[in-house]
Amino acid sequence: MKPLEIKGLIIQYYVNNQWVDVVSNVDLDIDERGEILAVVGESGCGKTTLGLAVAGLLPSNAKIARGYIKVFDKDVTSTSNSIKIAMIFQDALTSLNPLLTVGEQIAEIDIHHFKMSKKKAFEEAKKRLAEVGLPTTFVSKYPHELSGGQRQRVLIAMAIAMNPELIVADEPTTALDVTTQARVLILLRDLVKKLGIPMIYITHDLALASQIADKIAVMYAGQIVEYSNKYSLFKEPKHPYTQALLSSIPRVDVDVSELHIIKGEPPTPGSFPRGCRFHPRCPLAFSKCFVEEPIPRKVSSYGYVRCHLYG
């Protein structure tokens, strides 16, 4: 029983009177409890939509057109079962209700899910706050009274309070300063490892993914173009997009005098190119890439790459 199994997933949005693919044919999985899978991609690649779908929070103008998402063998799309999937969003300020105290927002989970008394739920909320390194007195604070890092910790506390079977974290630290980001991130990583909760971590930052995740899926134009464990992905990136991405990031640890440039800009849903979706920007594209869409191919003991070079 895998914590997460996604097969042939297609998600579409209804825009301008037609259904448009935003996520196409995604296969992903998490093998064990406490494993972290990073989904890395640029804006518009469909990574957030994928996360929302896993958490069962797709907006009303989106649908899963094909494929399935199973969490511990239970289909998340069927309403009959009560899988608990927590999601941590990007902007912690807007993700918290401004009119309710931190305590009220954490405690309501216990009150409604576990039929706890209000008093007991508040005691639990205090424990959760302590777990994420916040003072227990914060139960009576309002979100606007906290700093960005503190708010993000509250969101993490809330996710943990759900006792979830899976956590989806969508760039939870991008809005924070680097030092706060590092602290919150390490807290989150260590917490899910300790509690054995599987997690999908969505980010645009490959460096971050290398430190937090076990496995990395690189997403481009709605597809997973490369999927591997993080060691082989960094040591031997297969897909030209992954290679280019790795060499286009400025680094703190070494002096880089020239950045690799991927020409053009990523396509948006509705205008994905024919053939391989990366071919207009790919330095290695050949005739086959213009006409035929590559299928995922297994290249190492783990994972796959979606590229004709490995056909």
């Binding site: 700093s147 030092t179 590092a182 390490i186 930052d205 430190q211």
Partner: peptide
């Protein structure tokens, strides 16, 4: 020093050990 250490190195083999003191306003 703490700023530099906060950056994760883009390398899974490298150990990322941020030296960041407690948050204060």
């Amino acid at each position: 020093n703490s700023l530099i250490s906060a950056y994760p190195p883009p390398d899974p083999e490298a150990i990322w050990k941020p030296e960041i003191p407690e948050e204060s306003s």
